[in-house]
Amino acid sequence: MESEKIKFTFLSADGTRQQVVGAAGETVMEVAYANGIEGITAECGGSMSCGTCHVYLDETTFAQAEAPSENEVDMLDIVSSERRPTSRLSCQIKLSAALSGAEVTIPETQF
């Protein structure tokens, strides 16, 4: 299970699509970093302390993925780009089968 590979896509604010592969258990933020995806700043390094790794999931994935914790929901209140119903902090989304084929949209700005 640990080595299971999950394939999903980052959609940048400028329309660029990049398909990436990560291992189950890794976070979306970590995969973005590993693949040089721009626009996910994650200034605190994934500690849910800065609100700069904000992304939008597609509706299906949002519904399938594990629900955000109460702390994450609180942090989503303070993100800089518009908060939408499928907003998440990418440092809190762990790759699982639910993320397979997901479309992760990166907001225009994290500041």
């Binding site: 700043t41 200034e43 605190c44 390094g45 500690s47 849910m48 302390s49 800065c50 500041f111």
Partner: peptide, 18 residues
């Protein structure tokens, strides 16, 4: 340039950074 550690890193990341 922005990948510096002037505001720390982790759960104590500076809240006044902005």
């Amino acid at each position: 340039a922005r990948s510096h550690l002037a505001f720390g890193n982790g759960i104590h990341f500076c809240m006044g950074a902005p």
